[in-house]
Computed example of a mutant assay.
Amino acid sequence: MHELSIAQSVVDAVCERAGDRKILTVRLEVGRLCAVVPDSLLFCFDVVTAGTHAEGASLCIDEVPASARCRACGDSFSPPDMFLLCPCGSADVEVLAGHELRILSMEVS
C-alpha cells in the first residue's frame, strides 16, 4: 500500500509549509496511471494527520484521466487501463497525461 507513504509525504510537505497554522484543506492532483486508489489515500491521510497541524483537514483529490498519443498512427486516445495499447494495436505510445501526482493547494487558518 504505497498510499500510506504518499499520504505521509503530503502531510510532511504541507505541515512544513504551514508552520504553526492549522491546515484545513489539501487539494491533490492524481493521474489515473499513478496506480493510486483514492479511497485508500483518503484513509491513509486521516491516519497520518493525527497529532499534526493537519489533523481534521479534508483531502480533495482531482483525478486526471489518462491520455496518450500513438507514435505509429498518430492518433490520440484515452487508455481505459494501465495497458497502454493504441486501438491500432501499437504499444509505441507517448503518455500525455495521467502520471501527475502533485499538491495543488492548501487552505490554512
Score class of each variant (00 low, 15 high):
residue 72 A to R: 12
residue 97 A to M: 03
residue 17 R to Y: 08
residue 84 L to N: 05
residue 102 R to F: 14
residue 92 D to V: 07
residue 5 S to Y: 04
residue 52 T to W: 01
residue 67 S to C: 11
residue 43 F to E: 11
residue 32 R to G: 10
residue 26 V to C: 04
residue 81 D to H: 09
residue 93 V to G: 15
residue 87 P to D: 00
residue 100 E to R: 03
residue 10 V to R: 13
residue 105 S to T: 10
residue 26 V to G: 04
residue 74 G to M: 10
residue 60 C to R: 14
residue 56 G to A: 03
residue 7 A to D: 06
residue 55 E to Q: 11
residue 59 L to F: 10
residue 48 V to N: 03
residue 108 V to M: 11
residue 95 V to G: 05
residue 12 D to A: 15
residue 101 L to H: 05
residue 93 V to P: 15
residue 95 V to W: 02
residue 54 A to E: 00
residue 79 P to R: 04
residue 59 L to M: 10
residue 31 G to Y: 02
residue 46 D to K: 13
residue 41 L to I: 11
residue 22 K to L: 13
residue 81 D to E: 10
residue 32 R to W: 05
residue 36 V to T: 05
residue 88 C to F: 04
residue 91 A to R: 12
residue 68 A to P: 04
residue 106 M to A: 15
residue 73 C to G: 05
residue 79 P to M: 08
residue 64 V to S: 00
residue 48 V to W: 02
residue 13 A to I: 06
residue 88 C to L: 01
residue 20 D to W: 03
residue 80 P to H: 00
residue 34 C to I: 02
residue 89 G to I: 12
residue 52 T to P: 01
residue 99 H to L: 06
residue 78 S to Y: 04
residue 92 D to Q: 12
residue 85 L to I: 14
residue 90 S to N: 08
residue 44 C to Q: 14
residue 74 G to I: 09
residue 86 C to L: 08
residue 37 V to S: 07
residue 14 V to R: 11
residue 15 C to E: 08
residue 32 R to I: 02
residue 48 V to G: 02
residue 23 I to E: 07
residue 24 L to T: 12
residue 97 A to G: 01
residue 7 A to H: 05
residue 30 V to T: 04
residue 4 L to E: 07
residue 38 P to C: 04
residue 76 S to P: 02
residue 82 M to C: 13
residue 75 D to N: 13
residue 94 E to F: 03
residue 65 P to Q: 08
residue 48 V to M: 00
residue 70 C to I: 09
residue 26 V to E: 03
residue 61 I to T: 02
residue 41 L to H: 11
residue 71 R to I: 09
residue 90 S to C: 11
residue 16 E to A: 12
residue 67 S to L: 13
residue 101 L to Q: 08
residue 106 M to S: 13
residue 108 V to L: 11
residue 79 P to F: 07
residue 89 G to Q: 10
residue 61 I to P: 00
residue 42 L to W: 08
residue 76 S to T: 15
residue 101 L to Y: 07
residue 10 V to H: 14
residue 73 C to Q: 06
residue 73 C to D: 11
residue 7 A to E: 07
residue 82 M to W: 13
residue 73 C to E: 05
residue 84 L to T: 06
residue 75 D to M: 10
residue 52 T to R: 01
residue 31 G to H: 02
residue 108 V to W: 05
residue 91 A to I: 12
residue 90 S to E: 08
residue 105 S to Y: 06
residue 24 L to Q: 13
residue 85 L to V: 14
residue 108 V to D: 09
residue 18 A to R: 05
residue 78 S to G: 11
residue 13 A to Q: 09
residue 106 M to F: 15
residue 28 L to F: 13
residue 101 L to F: 14
residue 85 L to K: 11
residue 94 E to N: 09
residue 98 G to A: 01
residue 81 D to L: 04
residue 10 V to Y: 14
residue 75 D to W: 03
residue 66 A to I: 00
residue 6 I to C: 06
residue 45 F to N: 03
residue 62 D to Y: 02
residue 60 C to T: 13
residue 80 P to I: 01
residue 79 P to E: 05
residue 27 R to M: 14
residue 101 L to C: 10
residue 29 E to I: 11
residue 100 E to C: 02
residue 62 D to S: 09
residue 90 S to H: 06
residue 81 D to W: 03
residue 65 P to E: 12
residue 76 S to G: 10
residue 17 R to F: 06
residue 69 R to T: 09
residue 36 V to F: 01
residue 67 S to F: 07
residue 37 V to R: 08
residue 19 G to F: 01
residue 18 A to N: 07
residue 70 C to T: 08
residue 23 I to L: 13
residue 19 G to V: 01
residue 95 V to I: 14
residue 60 C to F: 12
residue 63 E to W: 00
residue 101 L to G: 07
